[in-house]
Design a protein around this nucleic acid. Structure first.
Lengths: 203, 203, 203, 203
DNA sequence: ACCGACGGGACCGCCCGTTGTT
DNA sequence: AACAACGGGCGGTCCCGTCGGT
């Protein structure tokens, strides 16, 4: 393997191994010692690839949200009707709580709560990802569903998407608080019923 | 003023002035320097009343949750039908976002996200307060409402309460992320419609 | 009891209760919190009677050495021959290790080791007490013993007293190091034999 | 110079420069500021080599006792008869007081007096070194001497070794207390006479 | 590319002593 | 005479980032 490739490989490995640590302990709560332990590298080895802890944290955040985004994209690949797509999104998050792809819960939630003021760059990225999820994904599904008559007419996509995403994020928070996945089970059950209700009259 | 009274007064003042700081910056993110700046006291003066940063943080947390709890109790004082009480709870949180009684958002949300593992005492308190809110307040309202025929029969109080609280907490998080109160407005609007739907058939 | 007497009583109690604490933890190692715990008084109550921690430490030191001095004086009261008096002094220290009148070992040893440079006032007092013990007590017994023909002629009182005191202090140190009184038993046994040897030829 | 070698060299230098400071002021009495002043390094530089003050103190203790141990081993190298070896040990300590290899007196004495309870690790090491000196060195010399007929029959090696070590440690303490080396001179003179007495009959 | 030494600073906890009030 | 509030400071620990070296 070429020298360049080896460097890039190391860099990738650092991000992958740092990402779950950042998600669990937060930006400030993660020390370089933690990152050294997680990566097996010394400080110099990390700073060769990233100019600062923050730069690494940003990439780690992108990595984490990318993992979740991939899960959603994959779940939506073969479902084309709006109700089904909404059910699929809910189920991604339900399985997210039951079998987390990485520890520490939702990176958007964590970043929002921790980075209030202190980490504008992270917050900006979180805003963008959340906008993509709420408006670009859920909102768009609802809008198209109404357009196609798959969902009850008169629904406001913004409201539906916001409430749905809020319920999901809140459920993740409740699960962490109680150390149980049952809040997500209940919330998902409610969301599924709601989706069915929205689809009901349209049929 | 008596010496005893002066001490108690100072102690109360410390809690009051520290509480919003803890809520904004989190337990670890709040330094004693921050608390010194907020209270106008030196380290020794603070340490005289609280044996540790954690002890003060616990009281600050109680203070913050107490403020919210008081708002809810006051809002429920003169409303006795289940739908009205649910609307009232939602409105408390809507006004909570529009005119926050203290900065930094919901202390339960913040504590849950930050204190995952590192602050078991805070987490335990948050669990208790959340249990009181979800089961003792919202869940009980729903259960009684169904019992009295004010709410649609067959509703599961646990599911309704969990989904409602999740949506509210998630909305608070979205508001912080976007720096706007519109996610809460949308979510509240959805919750009000839902409450009306639950009350509809009962009438 | 008069008011003055009550104050003096409290002052005496403070010294008595502080003395063992100082002897165990040393001057610097004893905090005002320790003294508050030992006396049951608040800081102000202590500072009313003593202008500083050092002032109290000095009196505590005097108290401790006074206790030992009393033991020696009492042991010497009814013994008038030099060998007997030397045996008696050794036995005071042997019983000192077996049934300590206060914890922490010999205050002279402790003060010497800790107060090297940092506490000149304590050191000065320790010097005086040690001079009294070595020259005024042991040295004088030897000198009179030789004078009276009770001890072998030609003995140098200074050398005998110094070596005897050194062995005793060293034995106390060994007992603390090993957590056992056997070093003192062995050293006392040796000293008794030595005393007998010094008295032997004189008879 | 190699980087590895530079670090090891610095580490060695820290121990060497910290050792006398610890011996003079004690473990608790030595602050990191003292160590910074002694080594010329910043806190970070010291902390890089030692995980805690205690870790450094332990190595400093080992260094100090090692220096004394080397002096004793060297003094015993070319002396093979028991009386000569005992004289040699006494003379090491006599010269130890007259021309100290490091300030602060005997590390065993200092550690014993200060570390009573508070520093179990240091105390354990001191116990081991003292056991080696008293039993492994002095006691063994006496035992062999009796065995070979170089020393008076019937002597108990334990008692002799204990009394001798006690006298030496006590003499060191007296020298520090008086700020003079004459207590050690007198004690050594006594010990030399005693050794001669033990060897006398054997000849 | 990776290591490891080091600086300089901030953290919380605890210290001792003073001051004002019963 | 005794208490309790408070100031100001030092304690050890650990932090992040830089830089000289292999």
């Amino acid at each position: 393997m070429a020298n360049n490739a080896r460097g890039a490989e190391t860099r990738r490995r650092i991000v992958e191994q740092a990402a779950p640590v950042f998600n669990q302990r937060g930006y400030a709560g993660t020390s370089l010692s933690d990152l050294m332990a997680a990566t097996g590298l010394e400080k110099g080895g990390i700073y060769n690839h990233f100019g600062s802890k923050e730069a690494l944290a940003l990439e780690a955040f992108d990595h984490n949200t990318g993992v979740v985004g991939d899960l959603i994209r994959r779940a939506l690949r073969d479902v084309h009707d709006a109700p089904g797509r909404l059910h699929a999104v809910v189920d991604v998050y339900r399985s997210f709580v039951r079998r987390p792809p990485f520890p520490g819960g939702c990176p958007l939630l964590n970043t929002t709560v921790e980075a209030d003021d202190t980490q504008p760059a992270l917050l900006e990225r979180a805003r963008a990802v959340m906008g993509d999820l709420r408006d670009g994904t859920v909102g768009r599904i609802v809008a198209k569903g109404v357009e196609r008559g798959e969902l009850r007419a008169g629904l406001d996509p913004d409201t539906v998407a916001t409430a749905a995403v809020a319920a999901i994020e809140g459920a993740i928070m409740l699960c962490r608080l109680e150390g149980s996945s049952s809040p997500m089970e209940r919330t998902a059950s409610f969301l599924h019923q709601w989706i069915d209700w929205m689809a009901e009259v349209a049929r």
